[in-house]
Design a protein around this nucleic acid. Structure first.
Lengths: 157, 157
DNA sequence: GGTGTATTATTGAGTGCGCAATCAATGGTA
DNA sequence: TACCATTGATTGCGCACTCAATAATACACC
């Protein structure tokens, strides 16, 4: 095999644009989460998903959400949410709240400590995000990225 | 919503564009990987990273790469690559090859079976990817997405 | 030619999450 | 009222990955 160009050579070029977009999405996600997670973890002891959960809850009516709904918004499975909230509950950042109307559901409720933690972390974290993106992209490109990604599965909310 | 707007309300609106792009990248990645991984797993018994590793190796000179280089391209840690290749080696899709010039390195070498597996999976998988993206985005948007993501960390290769 | 530093790869321990199974509660149907 | 399908949440199990530590080799330097 000289250089593989014959048979199974999946030459990076001939690929459909969608496939190129897809692999770049994969790589970009891996690279950016690694960077941002490390910073967030080091500075505030939160994972990205911890932060995202607090953020989503803080934005919700009354600072609380059914666990199923939180799963949908974070694009996690219900069991993933249970595990994620375990940590946040142990840390006192989120609390359980019952629902009288439907006793199957338990709300996830941000606590005051959770809101405080979020406020504490938000500025630095958003700054990191902004710096990371603006280091590589123009303002227009960032807008484009946000808009296009909003149309893809997971972005509709 | 007359609620929560006071203190820690992180209103989705006022957020910098970069932050919106970032959260959408997170959600889009979660949603698309879940969908595509399930399909790839069911139809060919490969994870996304299995597939990506085979693909990257198949494109490389001689169908092989230093493990460190593979890690860089897949945006994994070296230990992640060791574990990933364990599975592929057990399945006979990748083999180890020594390097005379530097006895620290062991190449990861796609086998014929690996190339066959890749060929077998490629069409269906790329079709899935294409269908998924084209279902939500125009050709132009897909191009934009690929181009912009190429400038972000992890996409430079 | 021996010493110190950098690089490659692996291993042990631990984490985060998905899948499938399970339990509890709800609501419709007869 | 009894039944059953549906929905919300959790649990056991397993996988894929990271981090930190380790071993082996390479190379520069005097």
């Amino acid at each position: 095999m000289s250089t593989q160009l014959s048979s199974a050579q999946a030459s990076t070029d001939g690929l459909p644009a969608a496939v190129k977009a897809w692999t770049r999405l994969l790589r970009a996600h891996a690279a950016t989460t690694r960077i941002l997670n490390a910073r967030l973890q080091a500075e505030h002891g939160l994972t990205i998903n911890d932060y995202e959960a607090l953020q989503v809850l803080a934005c919700a009516e009354g600072g609380r959400l059914k666990r199923v709904e939180l799963a949908r918004r974070l694009v996690l499975t219900p069991s993933g949410v249970t595990r994620l909230l375990e940590g946040l509950e142990d840390a006192g950042l989120v609390a359980r709240a019952a629902c009288q109307a439907d006793r199957r559901v338990t709300y996830a409720q941000v606590t005051d400590a959770g809101l405080a933690k979020l406020r504490e972390a938000a500025c630095g974290h958003e700054g990191s995000v902004q710096a990371l993106f603006e280091e590589h992209l123009s303002a227009k490109e960032i807008e484009q990225l946000a808009e296009v990604l909003g149309k893809v599965p997971g972005g509709e909310d």
